[in-house]
Amino acid sequence: MAGDAMNAIEARRLTRELPGPVPVTLVRDVDLKVNRGEFVAVTGPSGSGKSSLLYLLGLLDVPTSGSVLLHGHETAGLSADDMAQLRLARIGFVFQFHFLLPEFTCQANVEIPIRRLAALSDSQARKRAEALLDSLELADHRRKYPDQLSGGQRQRVAIARALANDPPLILADEPTGNLDTRTAALVFELFRKLAHDQGRTVLVVTHDAELAQTADRRIHLVDGRIIS
């Protein structure tokens, strides 16, 4: 299995259907391998199933058939609690909306996943959150609440939160959808660094073809199938 372990993500004949009177297939027979430390952009028109694929790979959703292997480990058949634990420790999510908790400061928002994992003491958690925010040039905004920040700043706090438990896998769903071009480019640059400098595997869903060009690899989806 040593060879398989090289793949951070592996999808085997992944299919996701929404049941109903008229079943809708979101993702169809997707086979995919992503290497460690690779920065991959997933593109496609809206409704092509790129977000659905991301949720399946991030264990937020369960496939109708097929399976997902993370770092060589089969995830099919894991309980909901086990999947939550994997998301907590191994996967960092960034969404189009920052989804920061509005009642908590930036610092506290970043601390939440650390404290949930409870591998660090409270004071260590605070230091880690501070360090993360500092590294994203948010040192001055630690005590601020999300609604006191600009869109780009908020998204950077959300990235800091995704990195909170030092996950090897970063999954981003349209992270630049609400940002202006310049800020979006900065955020993409940040993802590239996370992959190339820190060795994390980064998968970004975007509809911006220009930004997608900066990724190591592009996966293009149409109607739930990988076209290229």
């Binding site: 909901a80 998301r87 996967i91 999510f93 969404f95 989804f99 949930r116």
Partner: peptide
């Protein structure tokens, strides 16, 4: 609802 969604995606279990 949104906060609950993000907490769950972050790795909060149902019982949490």
């Amino acid at each position: 609802t949104r906060d609950i969604g993000i907490l769950k995606s972050m790795g909060f279990r149902d019982k949490d």
